[in-house]
Amino acid sequence: MTVLLLAETHQGRLATDAVARTLSALAPLGDVHVLVAAGEGAEAAREAASLKGVSKVLLAESESLRHGLAEPAAALIASLASGYRHIAAPATAFARNILPRVAALLNVMVLSDVIAVHGAESFDRPVYAGNAVQTVQSTDPVVVFTVRTSAFAAVGRQEGAPVERVAAVADPGLSSWIEDMAVVSERPELASARVVVSGGRGVGSKESFDAIIQLADKMGAAVGASRAAVDLGYAPNDWQVGQTGKVVAPDLYVAVGISGAIQHLAGMKDSKVIVAINKDEDAPIFKVADYALVGDLFSIVPELTGKL
């Protein structure tokens, strides 16, 4: 049995952490072939080949694959699908866009956000914002699924596996890229950071969100936000942690001015240690926090930043 793993690349570079974590989820399923589909992907392919568990890298380079558009990528994967029992990818926005389309082209279901692999057909996945976990058994000939990377550790390195070029399929020309408004940051990535500092509605304004950022920078942490903070414009959309944002499980999660709606908890409750700072002592976030500090975040956060 062989697995085809769709790798994510950004401007020709592999999203190594996401791929390495997905590889550890796939370990029980057999050989893994990684597909790098990009504008220029040679460097990403070499990087993927050096990750433990990869037996071959397929490299497809084409202008139509440069920006992650779903139609050409899904058509490519569907054209490669025969011979694979599983088709998987990390559950990122990139793959969530593509894999359900692949599943439809193959007339099979997709499983999103797999958190445990029990065997070739049996998987766990969260439903209802993580308030329930389902064990499901697939009856499809090909199992297409995305993996919640925060549930798995990254694999290590190996001697490079072979890289084989495959042809991209003709671009159906249904959609076209216009622009990316990506924020380039020196901070760790939210999905893989060891420490995350998040701010919520209680932070009060975009300006006062700077205190959260300063604390995060002092701790070498990624910055997160609740949906309320993003909706109110305090923080950009890609910082959102929760059911419909990113799911994180860092060693330390610091929630500042976040009340703790179930949709937010869905995105962070698997963190190893949770610290909550909130002036409302009845805030639901305190029910999941290991360390609770009740008080005014506007004095606590600068004090904490200063003393660390």
């Binding site: 049996s122 308030n131 389902q134 499901v136 409750k269 926090a289 360390y291 609770a292 500090l293 904490l304």
Partner: peptide, 29 residues
């Protein structure tokens, strides 16, 4: 196409401790 074998509650977290100050928080962490 997917047979739901079982549905369970995820492991629940329990509330931890209240700390009184920033110093105590840092010490505990």
């Amino acid at each position: 196409r997917l047979k739901i074998v079982r549905t369970v509650e995820p492991p629940q977290r329990v509330a931890g401790v209240r700390v009184a100050s920033v110093d105590e928080l840092i010490e505990k962490l």
